[in-house]
Amino acid sequence: MKLTVRVRPGSRFTLVEELDDGSYRVAVTAPPERGKANAAVTAALAEHFQVPKSSVQILAGHAAWTKIVEIVQPR
């Protein structure tokens, strides 16, 4: 499953929001530096979809606010 995710780093809370168009908005407390925000986004989506972090991969947009993320359901 591939998701379009708009990320807000540096938030005061962690949020995963599903939008009407099927995309997601994710807020994380981590700052956008040295991959911290990407790691936090991965963790937040893993918890949201109840999958291991290893099942969440950022395919595109590593340094952008909008990312394409793949969620692989564990077998």
Partner: peptide, 11 residues
């Protein structure tokens, strides 16, 4: 009408 879906961690 529409549905709002959010999941948040509160400390």
């Amino acid at each position: 009408t529409t549905t709002i879906r959010q999941a948040v961690i509160i400390p």
